[in-house]
């Protein structure tokens, strides 16, 4: 995926260390967000069919829910939701969402909104931007320091 300028600028604005961990990244996002984040492992029944992740914005904190799966993939889902936060997406009002969940009764009046990561393609503009930034963040997270070659390796031509 070609990295957009928005993604590059957003990643740069985070001032992350050279080889950040996921907690470094979460810390930076929380700082920009101004609230703490709580992460929840979800299921297909709690998130909805075809939904892999969800960010719920409440007045006091944010909740990031991700579908249980392979670790790298679950992290990517989290990165996608963090990207919504970083890109300043406002989300949709929570009213009527997920009838049986804890938040179903909170409603719009408390300023609660949500965004999700669906696997339906094509993505709309906001989802596409969030997904692009998620790949950009993943690239930063998975970057590994180059192991410095020993003298013998250099001489041997490695």
């Amino acid at each position: 995926m070609q990295q957009t300028k928005l993604t590059a600028d957003t990643v740069e604005s985070l001032n992350l260390p050279a080889y950040p961990t996921l907690s470094d990244l979460v810390g930076s996002v929380e700082e920009k967000y101004g609230k703490t984040l709580i992460f929840e492992e979800g299921t297909v029944s709690s998130l909805g069919e075809g939904v892999t992740g969800q960010w719920i914005d409440t007045p006091s904190h944010g909740i990031v829910r991700y579908l249980r799966g392979a670790k790298a993939w679950s992290i990517h889902v989290v990165l996608h939701e963090l990207s919504h936060i970083l890109l300043g997406h406002k989300g949709k009002p929570l009213d009527g969402l997920i009838g049986g969940s804890f938040f179903s009764g909170i409603g719009k009046r408390h300023g609660v909104s949500w965004m999700c990561r669906a696997v339906d393609l094509p993505l709309d503009e906001a989802e596409a931007a969030a997904e692009n930034l998620a790949f950009g963040l993943a690239r930063v997270l998975h970057a590994a320091p180059q192991k410095e070659a020993t003298k013998a390796e250099r001489v041997f031509g490695l």
Binding site: T43, S46, A70, A72, I75, V78
Partner: peptide
């Protein structure tokens, strides 16, 4: 390949304040 990428970032549970699944 998935295992290789999994090994690069660390466990979600160890780096995120995760609630129990419901």
């Amino acid at each position: 390949v998935q295992a290789r990428f999994d090994g690069g970032v660390g466990s979600l549970e160890s780096v995120l304040p995760v609630r129990a699944a419901h």
